[in-house]
């Protein structure tokens, strides 16, 4: 799909926190597919868990700070050139989600499993908390689920 400035947006993996059960299947599946996990599940205050991975930002701060140009963004997708990487860690610090890591293999961030039709973390997710789609479709899905919840609350006479 086209974004607001006519740029092609890539699909991304989104998380529905109301469905995540903190099982860590996505982490293990990612580790199996890539050697090390690029998605991380954190439990907040014992009550909700949040899978965090690369948001495939339209304006990616990790790319912006990469002064040698090892990370670059073209038509929405971010690529990495290990020959240019100096190991400065700026990309790690710049990512607002902590979803970028740098180790001996270079920059580790979600590459959306290019060899698969659907990323491994999404296929494996037992509770269908991870969604792989265009952001517009995802927003539509979230609206639908919110409507069901609100409708149920009204139907059972609860105060919203």
């Amino acid at each position: 799909m086209q974004d607001r400035e006519g740029m092609i947006l890539s699909k991304a993996v989104y998380a529905d926190m109301s469905r995540c059960i903190a099982c860590h299947a996505c982490e293990v599946a990612c580790e199996k597919a890539h050697g090390a996990a690029k998605i991380f599940v954190d439990v907040v205050r014992d009550r909700v868990s949040v899978p965090v991975s690369c948001c495939q930002c339209e304006k990616a701060t990790c790319v912006m700070v990469c002064y040698p140009g090892a990370l670059s963004q073209d038509n929405g997708s971010i690529t990495f050139d290990s020959d240019r990487c100096t190991g400065c860690d700026l990309c790690v610090l710049a990512c607002p989600f902590g979803a970028v890591q740098l180790d001996t293999a270079g920059v580790r961030r979600c590459d959306l499993c290019p060899d698969r039709e659907v990323p491994a973390c999404v296929v494996t997710c037992p509770s269908q908390a991870l969604i792989w789609d265009d952001v517009e479709n995802i927003a539509r899905e979230i609206r639908k689920r919110a409507a069901v919840k609100m409708g149920r609350s009204l139907a059972s006479g609860r105060v919203l």
Binding site: H24, A25, E27, V28, K32, T124, C125
Partner: peptide, 9 residues
């Protein structure tokens, strides 16, 4: 198609 972490491991 889904698997829990133990299934994956």
């Amino acid at each position: 198609g889904a698997l829990c972490p133990k299934g994956n491991a």
